[in-house]
Design a protein around this nucleic acid. Structure first.
Lengths: 347, 347
DNA sequence: CTGTTAGCGCGTTCAT
DNA sequence: ATGAACGCGCTAACAG
């Protein structure tokens, strides 16, 4: 294992000079510097980041916790966060929490142990009561930022799509098409931010029209995947046909579509379906899903920016930085035929 | 920053004893041990992994390089690799190479600097000539394993699907349906393992039937994404209609489907389409893509297993460990109507 | 400009 | 069973 002292010897300088030269710091003769750099290359020297981190108290790595890396939405977000941190000269350490609160805590603890310079956290879809690791992060003066969602009660900046607005826009659009009996599929814990905001936007659109919101149409699902979207929709449709189905994400919406088709209903003629996220697959001609796009690139960019601002010592207010959602209308939604026979449809 | 010495003081023992106690090593009085552990908890002690790694020369973290984390295929693979390494008590450091050779090299160099205990590499879709970082890995005695593909000329174990076999099975199936003029969309550099093997399987199926393979039907694409699958297919179809189109992955196949539909051809009646990977979206009713499934869980499990065998000091032969592919027949393929009018279709 | 020295926080002999 | 002293590889502060 060739180390700094070996390089120094070969270049006939002291360890300190070798260090300065290799780190391109000022105050070292250009000729000596080149000699050191060459010696390092010849010997195949690769600096030990651990030792460096121990000495400088900075690791140049930031930790990212993601809930579900199989979902292209988070895949895309991860890609951009990785890209932007890399451009800033930092490395990303990624771990997958799999929506498990305890695992998430372990991961963050590990990040702290690794002395990362910052943490980006994509919260799980479960309410977190034990906030102790945030306290540990604070004690260690490790900056952290929420991305995509946040845990209530944690004083921390957050970058996320204005889900309430997106949900509102989508619901308003559906109501405008004459739909009244709209099913909303949310997560297991509806009090969690991503669900809560979507429900709020949903309700706002109804109230705006002076319509009452049937709370029973807001359905909690154990998981937020294809299977669960399918099973839940199937179960509910057997008890009565809604005008439209909105899901918390695209993949659940696709599950819902499957259930609807299986029961012989036409989409969108009989039932409209809408998702959320605008995952790449949703734009494919076969899928044509109406959805609300979340700009992962923008979210990633702002998240990284906010984190680095803190790393550079600047204070960042613990508020939410909202990213604008984008209603994307495709072919899984259309006017509600049944209603239009009975009622006049408002604008 | 509370450190080991602080814990030791609070527990009224020496640093050495505190270390032994916290690491649950033998030779320390159970009572003292509890006292130490409690002191650590009270103080919110979080051991500095850097210092530990420096002292023990083991970091308990392994590095993973992935090419494209937006593709659910790699998302799924990453999920399993993360899971299995975690179960083994190791942490994963993930970086995205974005199919960039130079970036890949930088990432691996960084892993070496971080003194990871092992590296898992998903090679890019480009041929790698500069093999120097493998030499550096060897010098540092850091074990490494290829997953999903490998670079020719590097003595290293690899876990991947038997792509040749999968491609053969799929081609054979299409030939059996009467298709003869089959388009094969591969990557920019056809000499790269994932493309080469698919082409070989393709050819074997043709030769088995005594058919000549029209080399012009093996088409190289700049990228392996939806857009490129779409554009390439569009371009080629304008010069003549093939019986079927096979793509190197599912997402390209979907691009091909779009092009075919856009030109007004029916799938599968006029042109059959098949993909590769069996990404979750391919199973969705709207997509019904015939494809070759790769068992990401199995690949992930074996990859991690092979790496840890090396980490434990056991020798591992530098051969490829093939995982069985699985032909999945859905509704994007069917018998070739045109041929069946003219020729008798073999079994 | 360059060399000397003292930590960074922890694990690990070797005594006791 | 416990403690003192040293080393892991590197950077930073201070001399020269």
């Amino acid at each position: 294992m060739v180390k700094l002292v070996d390089v120094a010897k070969k270049a006939r300088v002291s360890e300190a000079t070798a260090s300065l030269a290799l780190n391109r710091k000022p105050g070292v003769n250009p000729v000596t510097r080149e000699r050191v750099i060459k010696a390092a290359r010849v010997l195949g020297y690769s600096p030990n980041t651990l030792a460096r981190g121990l000495a400088t108290r900075r690791t140049h790595s930031i930790g990212l916790v993601v809930t579900d890396i199989e979902n292209p939405f988070f895949g895309s977000l991860t890609r951009y966060i990785d890209q932007f941190t890399l451009e800033a000269g930092y490395n990303l350490i990624l771990s997958v929490s799999n929506d498990d609160l305890e695992l998430e805590a372990r991961i963050v603890q590990d990040f702290i142990g690794k002395r990362v310079d910052g943490v980006i956290l994509v919260p799980t879809l479960l309410p977190r009561r034990d906030l102790s690791y945030f306290e540990t992060l604070r004690k260690h003066r490790i900056p952290y930022v929420f991305s995509t969602s946040y845990y209530a009660g944690v004083p921390c900046a957050c970058v996320m799509t204005d889900l309430e607005e997106g949900s509102y826009a989508l619901t308003r659009y559906l109501l405008g098409l004459g739909h009244r009996d709209i099913l909303l599929l949310v997560s297991k814990s509806p009090e969690v931010v991503p669900s809560k905001l979507r429900i709020q936007g949903f309700r706002r659109a109804f109230e705006e029209r002076g319509l009452a919101l049937n709370r029973k149409r807001v359905v909690q699902c154990e998981h937020t995947d294809f299977e669960c979207g399918y099973a839940t929709t199937l179960r509910i449709l057997k008890k009565g046909k809604p005008d439209a189905v909105m899901a918390i994400n695209d993949i659940m919406a696709l599950g819902a579509k499957r259930a609807i088709k299986e029961l012989g209903h036409a989409i969108p003629e009989e039932i409209s379906v809408a998702g959320y996220d605008d995952v790449i697959f949703s734009s494919i001609p076969e899928i044509p899903l109406t959805t609300v796009r979340q700009d992962t690139r923008q979210i990633g960019r702002l998240t990284v920016e906010l984190l680095f601002r803190q790393i550079r010592g600047k204070a960042v207010s613990a508020k939410v930085h909202w990213v604008r959602p984008d209603l994307v209308i495709r072919k899984s939604t259309s006017a509600c035929l049944e209603r239009s026979r009975h009622e006049a449809i408002g604008n």
